[in-house]
């Protein structure tokens, strides 16, 4: 009898567990983040951004889904080549998520880094007109990000990339930025993300700078 009751209870508990279906947040985020490696086209990023949006819709207190949602849209803006209007439209979407995120974590270095990334993307849409204003805005956001966490490698990367972009535009010598990028790449792995689902991108981009040196 006792056995029966134990079996019964076990069964019930198994049933109940399986009723609480749905992978938990960490797991879903981990799986979704793995999707980055398969993204090649704007459409791929759009699909990935939608996944992050679905997670953000459920997990209203989490800033990371918003972070990645905006991040995908910023990449889409960089990838879009046919229309400057579309480039801005993607950034309009990114900006909404960035703003929501900034309200949740107003002292997060990664949040300011992403904001700087978005502002640089705005600059790239029309450098002639937006150059002055957005280079300052993006520079300030990077500065805040580095102030909050001087080791943040993504903030360091954006800092190098922004200054190098400006130097190239003005035809100035860019060799010192290669040195900085090499240094950053060398120490990249010393920085440990807060968790496996925290931002971890940027190494490839730094590599690109270093490789372009040759």
């Amino acid at each position: 009898m006792k056995k029966v009751v134990v079996v019964l209870l076990t069964t019930v508990s198994i049933v109940l567990t399986s009723m609480a279906v749905g992978p938990e947040f960490q797991k879903v985020m981990g799986e979704t983040l793995a999707g980055y490696s398969e993204c090649k086209t704007i459409e791929d990023y759009q699909g990935l951004a939608n996944k992050f949006e679905r997670i953000a819709n459920v997990e209203k207190g989490e800033w990371l889904p918003l972070y990645y949602h905006a991040h995908c849209y910023i990449i889409m803006s960089f990838m879009e080549q046919s229309s400057v209007v579309k480039k801005d439209e993607y950034l309009d979407v990114a900006e909404i998520s960035v703003n929501k995120m900034m309200e949740m974590v107003p002292y997060e270095s990664e949040a300011f880094t992403l904001q700087a990334f978005m502002l640089t993307a705005r600059l790239v849409v029309d450098p002639m007109t937006r150059g002055q204003e957005y280079s300052i805005l993006s520079g300030q956001a990077v500065g805040t990000a580095l102030g909050l966490n001087p080791d943040n490698p993504r903030a360091k990367y954006l800092n190098i990339s922004n200054e190098m972009g400006a130097a190239q535009f003005f035809g100035n010598d860019v060799s010192k930025y290669y040195t900085q990028a090499k240094e950053l790449l060398k120490n990249w792995d010393n920085f440990k993300s807060a968790s496996p689902i925290h931002p971890n991108w940027g190494k490839d981009q730094v590599k690109e700078i270093v490789d372009s040196c040759k």
Binding site: V21, G22, E43, Q46, G47, N50, K51, N57
Partner: peptide, 28 residues
């Protein structure tokens, strides 16, 4: 294309493809 289709309050969902088509399966 690229619309976000999902069941409200869950992670279940998908995006429409280049032809606007979509298909997904849910255990809900």
């Amino acid at each position: 294309p690229g619309a976000n289709i999902y069941i409200e309050g869950t992670y279940y969902g998908t995006s429409s493809d280049a032809n606007g088509k979509f298909s997904f399966t849910t255990n809900e």
